[in-house]
Design a protein around this nucleic acid. Structure first.
Lengths: 149, 149
DNA sequence: CTAGTCGTGTCAGTCTTCTGACACGCACCA
DNA sequence: TGGTGCGTGTCAGAAGACTGACACGACTAG
């Protein structure tokens, strides 16, 4: 398979490695979520709602790192399938607070366990100190990137 | 905006933080690449080719973390725009080695500088040791995740 | 030599997500 | 009181990426 001609610094770029790790995590999650009929965004939405009931569509979108338009179509599906509920009219302003139904909570349980096992596997072989260090570094990167141009 | 009800361990999950960091990086890259009329995958493809000339479509897809089908349509566009070249017939097997044209190399230069500035910003405030540690941790995560179920 | 496996390029169709745009409600301040 | 900015939900269209499937070449084991 295509001999690597140069072998450059791609493997030492934190940006590239970040993307690679994120891609590997996404693939691993899709792998365990697929048998349950769930996508990653799907799961993220449910997990978010379990931890913070009453979140708005826009909040969920931010938490799952998609646009509110995308989250909206996902919520419509989840609502149709009976996993979440939204009031017909906004109690205040235009915000429609979303909540998990018992059914949604049930299907989340299995998914949550599956995802947790992936995260455990990802962290295998890393010491507490290394994990804590990674946490700090990632937080710093996010802060710097969002700092604006 | 929507009081957080519980404030759970979402912010201490390395998986979530990894996704968050990757998302922030992607957004920052799109921001600087858009004025140049490039997408992230677009840029990744060109950068890959600059560092490893003659890569095949499938190799490029793996390097940019998309399917070979997606990379193929991208390559067709890049070829039409004169940024890359592929032989009409495969020298060996079915593999079509791709190469940058001078024009592709030129447009890559600007993009590369822009992306480098983003990475510099991302790494601001991190010591050499922290960066080296992050590199090791990310590599370990990737290895563990790909290790199979 | 032959059969099987693997990787590749490609076609077709579907789905998800994004960009762009609009109207509405709330909070703030002059 | 009226204006302005911000965030929200929603509609419509376009672009990007994916899944599934096929035939072909190379490589390996029997």
């Amino acid at each position: 398979m295509s001999q690597d001609g140069a072998g450059v610094d791609l493997e030492t770029s934190l940006g590239y490695l970040l993307k690679e790790a994120s891609s590997a995590l996404r693939i691993a999650m899709e792998e365990v979520l697929r048998p349950l009929g769930m996508t990653v965004t799907h799961y993220s939405c449910l997990e978010l709602l379990a931890q913070r009931p009453g979140l708005s569509n826009s909040d969920l979108a931010r938490g799952a790192f998609v646009t509110r338009q995308s989250m909206n179509v996902l919520l419509q599906n989840l609502e149709r399938e009976g996993h979440v509920t939204r009031p017909a009219a906004a109690p205040v302003g235009k915000v429609l607070p979303t909540r998990l139904t018992p059914r949604g909570r049930r299907s989340l349980e299995k998914a949550s366990a599956a995802v947790r096992s992936v995260e455990v596997r990802m962290l295998a072989g890393l010491s507490e100190d290394e994990q804590a260090g990674a946490l700090r570094v990632l937080r710093s990167m996010i802060r710097s990137l969002r700092g604006g141009a």
